[in-house]
Design a protein around this nucleic acid. Sequence first.
DNA 1: TACTTATCTGAACGAGTCTGCAATTGAAGC
DNA 2: GCTTCAATTGCAGACTCGTTCAGATAAGTA
Lengths: 129, 129
Amino acid sequence: MSETDDRLQRYLEDELGECRDENLQERLDELDELESTLDGDIVSSDVQTLSALGNETRYRLVRLLVEADEPLCVCELTPLVDVSNSAVSHALSTLSDAGLVTKRKEGRWRKYRATSRASALLTVLDGSR
Amino acid sequence: MSETDDRLQRYLEDELGECRDENLQERLDELDELESTLDGDIVSSDVQTLSALGNETRYRLVRLLVEADEPLCVCELTPLVDVSNSAVSHALSTLSDAGLVTKRKEGRWRKYRATSRASALLTVLDGSR
DNA sequence: TACTTATCTGAACGAGTCTGCAATTGAAGC
DNA sequence: GCTTCAATTGCAGACTCGTTCAGATAAGTA
């Protein structure tokens, strides 16, 4: 066996010996590249959005704000969910960081409103069930 | 002051004295009803879906599966993300419980594929940025 | 049969999250 | 000024999560 054959042999063993077949390997390389160019900021912003909504208290608050269709304050929201007003305030600030609600000062109150991103997500959840 | 006036007085203090105004109170009662009829199963299934996707490893796996557009196995996915194959397996099983991927036995491998719910969610995230 | 590869499972540990409490800020009204 | 109500903040305790490690299972191969 020539040296070239030998190297080819090792190449084939390395690349094709196990779970990856020929055609797929190319495709996986493409995916790998795609993975590495996927902007890390986008990933973490999406993950932040999803995990903000992936909590029962926060999910219910967002549903309420979307359905209310008018801005509500902490003191209005608290009786509608089963946690303290402090927890509601914490929750809303997490949601605000994630871009799912906006806050507006209004006299003595701070009125929260769901963003379009929030209602788009709920719409997809409802529509893909 | 008559007894009726007295009761009315107390009513007004209870209902209108603080952060809720008249019209809104009605609206809030509606929301409260809506809240309580919101099926708890739907809430927890949505929350499960969102929190499954709200984690970097799992989010990247789903993105890869959506973009691959063909079923991939653990051993193909592991090199594309930065965790052990055991972690990938755990992650995929979480995603499977959440209805974001499906699993199919294929010889020695188990091939995972993203569900339409998964790609719908990613589409909305991309489209509402 | 034993051996290898792919995957899964359970335990364990550290890290992170959620909530309530108490104290604080800020705005309005007396 | 003081009081009240709304909301926030910091903190502590309980709980949950994500990962790795080690061991088990299962399917194909020699």
